[in-house]
Amino acid sequence: MTEPLLRADGLVKHFPVLRGVVFRRAVAEVHAVDGVSFEIAPGETFGVVGESGCGKTTVARLVMRLVDLDDGTLTSDGEDITRVRGEALRKLRLKMQIIFQDPFASLNPRMTVGDIVGEPLHIHNMWKDGGPRRVRELLDLVGLAAEHAERYPHEFSGGQRQRIGIARALALHPKLVVCDEPVSALDVSMRAQILNLLKHLQEEFGLTYLFISHDLSVVRQVCDRVAVMYLGQVVEVAERDALFDRALHPYTQALISAIPIPDPELERKRRRIVLQGDVPSPQDPPRACRFHTRCFKAQEICEQIEPELEQRCDDHPAACHFAEPRAPVVESPA
């Protein structure tokens, strides 16, 4: 691998659970992210998947420096960005941008589309240098018309709003774009349009994506490498096809097998792993292997010794005492 564009090393973020009105005190801690490490190479799409509460969205915000780390380091292009503040942090914004999940909540309803897309230019003193032209260019890039600049976000459909969000993220020519569930709030036909747009933009500008999603089928479509998270920890990292065809961790296997396939014949023939119970509370995660309470392979050792995230076969680390591949999604591709 070449020099990574972004390296995350042992990221930790715990959120305090506050109680009390006058004197607020922490009564517990949510272990949102608990020792997460990964590297993203320039030009690749690195996926982070997991269910709600696994910490994937917190990872996105940590990387964007929207929330502060409790522990760990972030390195971008060899520069430590873990604690940059003020002007240095503003400079960092030129390099890293984010696309949000909810196209209804991520655009200020009181600003016009032109103001929204142009805001990064104003903030970074680039407006005088052909600002309006750049806004038109950006709108055109994401498939909107120049006249749309005068409208307000509520006049657009979900898919179009997501395009506005993408235009804003691209305004500063970033290298890394964090995509936080960019299509999960959209309808199927809009989803395909946005995924194709993201891919097109990546090819055109050599963008690197950190792609956060709960939907493994979307991840399979867009990502080059994937990390699977469970309760604040990475349980498996692999190249896309290695992950989908030879998943090693029981959780990944269950997750893949739970995604329905839009094909009745295959869908009804599948051997599905139905996990028992719910995801435990991240306030009080299970000891040792965090997945052992729901795991179909769990043994005594899983409750006692935490499995390390270590290489199982070539470049395919998984954190399980009993990691081994399972048959692919569908037993015999028809």
Partner: peptide, 14 residues
Amino acid sequence: EKEFVEAARSVGAS
């Protein structure tokens, strides 16, 4: 807590 405020922060707004 709104995402558009986070979005503004992430483009570097003071």
